[in-house]
Structure formats: C-alpha cells, structure tokens
Simulated assay, not measured.
Amino acid sequence: MLGSLPAEKKLNWKDYVGPMAHAYNCTKHETTGYAPFYLMFGRHARLPVDILFGIVNNNGPTDGEQYDDYVIKLLEQLNHAYVTSQNSASEAKARQKHNYDKRTTTNSVLKIGDRVLVQKKAIVGKQKLADQWEEKPYVIVNKHPTLPVYTVENDTHKRTLHRNLLTPCMFLPIEDPIDVNVNQHIIKSRSWKIKKGRELFESWKRKQAHLTDS
C-alpha cells in the first residue's frame, strides 16, 4: 500500500502508516470475507463517512436491551464470523494452491536420482549479479505420488520442495556421492572431476543470467 503513494510523499512514508493500517483494518478482506476490525471487535468501525452520509451504525446495545443479552449476541456474532472466515480462508488456500500447481513446469519431469539445484528464495528483487541458485547440487530421493513435490538430499541437508524451486543440473559433480534406495535398487551418483564441473557450472550461470536479462 505504501508503494502506491506519489513519489513526493514516499519520503515521508512513515506519516501514512497509521491511516493506511486503519484503512486496511476497516476493509473487507478477500480471503476471510470480513474486515479485520470486525473480527477483532465484533462490530464495524465508525467512520467519518458514516456521519457524512447519515448512516446509522447499530453496533451497541439497543434501547432497553440488557447488558448480558448484548454480550451473548456479540459472542454469537463473533463465533459465526470466526467459523465463516476460517472456511473462506481454507477455500482460498486450496484455490491458490491449485493455481500455483498449474504454473509448475511440466515439460521437464524430474526423476529419482536426478541432480538438481535449489533456488535461493532469500533474494528479493531482480539483483542481476546475485546467484539465483544454491551452489551445491542435490539428488532427488523421493517424489510425492500426486503433487509436484520432491524430496532432495545432499551430504549435509535433506529437504522437501516444490518443483518450481528446482532446476536440473546433471552436468554438475557431486563431491560425495549419495546412495539412494528406491524400490530396493541403489542409485549411485557419479562423481565428476571438480575442475570440469566448475567450468560447466559457471557456463550455466552465464546462460541463466542472459535469460533473466532478456
């Protein structure tokens, strides 16, 4: 939201944190279906625009209503809001996961025993000069039966990652070969010469940088 400020106001961005946080908290959230303010206090916020348009906001107890009755009604409203928002969030999560999986690369199927590099997710922004992939290769040791999720391993780490975070690198060496048991067959990774592997790795990084620039 702060990024939407005009250039001349971005220098004083801290002055707009409060108003923008208030606007966010009073706005209906796409995922939950409720404004954060309502989920916190069980009522809609009273805004200056309500006075401007003469909108009556019956959030508090009505005339003649007992305090205990109002508390019970408030708790019922909050409980309904919590259940509804949780269901909406679960549906949104499943929908987002489905859309994410659809973008997975399908023309390059990875197999158990393949060597891969893992993308560095800590890098923020374009950063053309930064390495986009971890230097040490991994070996695929398992694949989820229905999802594009793989378990990869090297001599120091074992991780479970989505296909979008992996790229094949069969030309790279593994200094310490890993034995992988799959269906009672042992897949032994070949160890290539380190010097030749480093040269190929540098060549591959230059190609990746060229594709990123283009």
Rank of each mutant, 00 (worst) to 15 (best):
V182C: 06
Q184A: 08
S191H: 02
R43K: 14
P168T: 02
V56I: 12
L52D: 08
P61S: 14
Y138Q: 02
A89W: 09
N183M: 03
K143L: 07
P168S: 05
D131V: 03
S203Q: 15
N79V: 02
V83S: 13
H80Y: 12
P148G: 05
K196H: 07
D63E: 12
K195S: 15
A130V: 08
E91I: 14
D155L: 02
K126M: 08
K196E: 11
G54C: 10
F171N: 08
M40V: 10
N154A: 05
P148A: 05
Q77A: 13
S88E: 14
M170G: 00
L39M: 13
R46Y: 12
D101K: 12
D63N: 06
N12W: 07
E134K: 12
M40T: 02
H29K: 02
G54P: 08
L74K: 14
V71C: 12
P173N: 14
K9A: 10
K136W: 01
A21T: 09
H98R: 11
D15Q: 13
T167R: 15
T212W: 04
T156M: 04
N154L: 00
Y38W: 07
I187A: 05
K111F: 03
V124P: 00
P168L: 13
T62V: 13
N99P: 00
K9M: 13
E30Y: 06
S191M: 13
A94H: 11
V141K: 07
E153Y: 01
C26M: 00
L110H: 00
W204Q: 11
N181P: 09
Q66D: 15
L117W: 07
L11R: 10
D176K: 15
T212E: 12
K188L: 01
T32D: 05
N99F: 04
Y70D: 09
T84D: 13
Q208Y: 01
F201A: 15
E153W: 00
L211Q: 07
Q119R: 15
F171E: 15
V71R: 10
V118R: 10
R198L: 10
H185L: 07
D101G: 00
D15C: 08
H22G: 00
D63W: 04
A35H: 02
H185C: 08
K93Q: 09
H80S: 12
L52V: 12
L172P: 01
D50T: 01
G125Q: 04
E91V: 13
G33T: 04
Q119G: 06
D68K: 15
E91P: 01
S4I: 02
K195P: 01
R190D: 10
D63G: 06
W133R: 07
V182P: 00
H210C: 05
R159C: 02
R163T: 03
S88M: 13
G3D: 13
S191I: 03
A35Q: 02
N181R: 04
G18F: 05
V118G: 01
K126L: 14
S203K: 14
E135T: 12
K121W: 05
V71M: 10
Q119T: 07
A130W: 01
L200H: 08
L47W: 00
R103P: 01
V182D: 11
I174D: 01
F171R: 02
T105Q: 05
I123K: 08
D68N: 11
K14W: 15
V83P: 01
V141Y: 00
D131A: 15
F201N: 11
V141M: 04
P173E: 08
G125M: 06
Q184L: 09
Y150V: 09
N87M: 14
K73D: 11
L75H: 14
K102T: 09
A7I: 14
K205H: 05
A45V: 06
